[in-house]
């Protein structure tokens, strides 16, 4: 096994730490309304900044998931710092599950 304490590793921080904290919009997704996100995935396709990510919540050994079954997949807003509140996802969502709020500075 490699002794990790002896290894020098490079560091890279593209985020400007002096600029933090930054304000970003709050995106909430109602998972009771949005049950089959990977079957619908309109928000994934609508977002120009790829804010949303959809993943298989129940990763099971020896089994494939069915995207049409409710509750298997879940969509979350990951890259919120990229969101510029164009509200395309809110308009596209057939279940009206997405809300975006931007606090005034």
């Amino acid at each position: 096994m490699v002794d990790k304490s002896k290894i020098k590793v490079p560091k890279a921080t593209p985020q400007d730490l002096t600029r933090l904290p930054i304000k970003m919009p709050k995106i909430t997704i109602d998972h009771n309304k949005c049950t089959v996100p990977f079957w619908c995935k309109k928000c994934l396709q609508a977002c120009p900044q790829l804010v949303f990510q959809c993943y298989c919540k129940h990763l099971e050994k020896l089994r494939e998931s069915d995207p049409r079954q409710p509750g298997i997949y879940e969509v979350i807003a990951v890259r919120r710092d990229k969101c510029h509140v164009c509200n395309k996802c809110v308009e596209m969502c057939p279940e009206n599950a997405i809300t975006i709020t931007l606090e005034e500075a």
Partner: peptide, 18 residues
């Protein structure tokens, strides 16, 4: 799921300070 949650945690931390 693990990766996505890591990324989300980092983006959330951007809101809270250096």
């Amino acid at each position: 799921a693990g990766y996505i949650n890591l990324e989300r945690a980092m983006v959330d931390a951007l809101e809270r300070g250096p």
